[in-house]
Design a binder for these strands. Structure first.
Lengths: 248, 248
DNA sequence: TACAGTTGTCTATATCAATAGACAAATTTA
DNA sequence: TAAATTTGTCTATTGATATAGACAACTGTA
């Protein structure tokens, strides 16, 4: 942002210190506050945001707790390096290849799996009957030891029986689908929204309460257009941005 | 969501009533709470979310204020119809055509315009020198009388001198660009994030404080690949979702 | 009518959030 | 060393947030 000094909202249900912490995170992401450099002093921030110094201190305390800042008495408060991952989304969206070059290691951890009857929404997406058995996988995407996504994925249980074992073993959706004869697939549709992280997301993504998650709801299809996978993924907005490439 | 009963977080900087209001909005969007039907009674909601009935009442009061719910003493609290707009994003993203079929009327209102030197970020995106003059437009997208987006757009001032007048007159980016000999253009890149709405967004989008906005940062190019427009758009997450179509 | 179920209002209390001011402790600079 | 700058700690006060309980007001139904 080119210094749009929009101010802070009061009595919204979101505390001032949380809003200011969000602003500082934005400032770091947008380059207003350089990495490894000192933040403006607390009194200056208090004036900039029109709040008391103690309120700024609460925001800073939260970000120190979060590992984003380090405060040193007498010297200043410093921005630790913490660039947001840029997660590409397009027809060939895949977790692992998408983050190549940004991280040295990444995989998908299977948190739990279950079989359940398909809800209307899932049945429609997968093109099966409502109530038919589907396998649900709860997974967490990890890159360089950090949690970067939390997803819930559904497969037709008849066609993909045992896929949870393949996921646990390979740590990859692409590799698991290969075992069922699917060597290539496409992202058919993606719907995007955002919300506050719920307790489950907070725990799995190692977020501080009040964090925002980006939510994608996607359907993957075979090259023939047959739906094979329905997934809802949550990404921590403070650590991940989604990049859409044209014609991809 | 298939009824994942994840609970609420305390002392996060986001008040319980705000979190519960968000959850109810999600519930409406996901179909957990049907439109025009009664919400569960306050005591049931209080138990479901593990909070006091008065806290649920605060959340409901906020949503009534927002026009999402209507409470009737003795009868119950009802969901007003309020479907989220689905805003398509792809290579041919355009405001007006994208919402066709979902709304009967839409246009872009020009809130203000100014000329300023390009920041590093904007200069890079537009392929011009840092400090060169750019025109900044502050706009609001409206559909059926409701604000659905708030955007800040930059153009090279040399090439698009007077585009603010064209925007004010036509209410359309596409139509304005035609006056400068650009009959077609493509969305080159889009980067997506989310944050709490700031004061400016709240006012322009008619949101209640604490609301979340989806943020897109996009570059449009001519068919030759020459960048012509750089824009940051904010969409109210409670009213708009973004839909990405493969191969678009 | 009587009753069960629901939202609306009131009082009271405890904790969190925000402001205000003063001063201590550590670091850097003159 | 002395002064200026910056973060850390403490006390005090106010308003918002959350819980608790009781009861009134309204609706639909037995």
């Amino acid at each position: 942002m080119t210094g749009l000094a929009s101010s802070i909202e009061r009595r919204n249900g979101v505390s001032l210190w949380r809003q200011i912490a969000d602003r500082i995170l934005q400032g770091i992401a947008s380059g207003d506050f350089a990495e490894n450099a000192a933040l403006p002093p607390e009194v200056a921030l208090a004036e900039r945001y029109g709040v008391n110094r103690h309120t700024v201190r609460s925001a800073i305390a939260a970000l120190v707790q979060e590992g984003v800042l380090r405060a040193e008495q007498g010297r200043g408060t410093f921005v630790l390096s913490r660039k947001r991952l840029s997660y590409p989304i397009g027809a060939r969206t895949r977790f692992s290849t998408g983050l190549q070059g940004q991280t040295s290691e990444r995989h998908i951890a299977l948190l739990s799996s279950s079989t359940e009857p398909a809800s209307r929404r899932i049945a429609d997406a997968l093109g099966i009957a409502k109530g038919a058995a589907v396998i649900r996988l709860e997974t967490r995407g990890e890159a360089d030891g950090h949690a970067v996504s939390r997803a819930t994925t559904w497969f037709d249980a008849k066609r993909f029986a045992g896929i949870e074992a393949a996921m646990a073993e390979t740590g990859s959706i692409t590799a698991s689908l290969k075992r069922f004869g699917i060597n290539d697939y496409l992202r058919h549709s993606t719907v995007l929204s955002a919300r506050h992280a719920d307790a489950d997301d907070l725990a799995a993504l190692d977020l501080q309460p009040g964090a925002i998650v980006l939510v994608t709801v996607a359907v993957n299809v075979t090259l023939d257009g047959e739906p094979i996978q329905f997934a809802e993924s949550r990404f921590p907005a403070e650590r991940v941005e989604l990049r859409l490439s044209a014609g991809d």
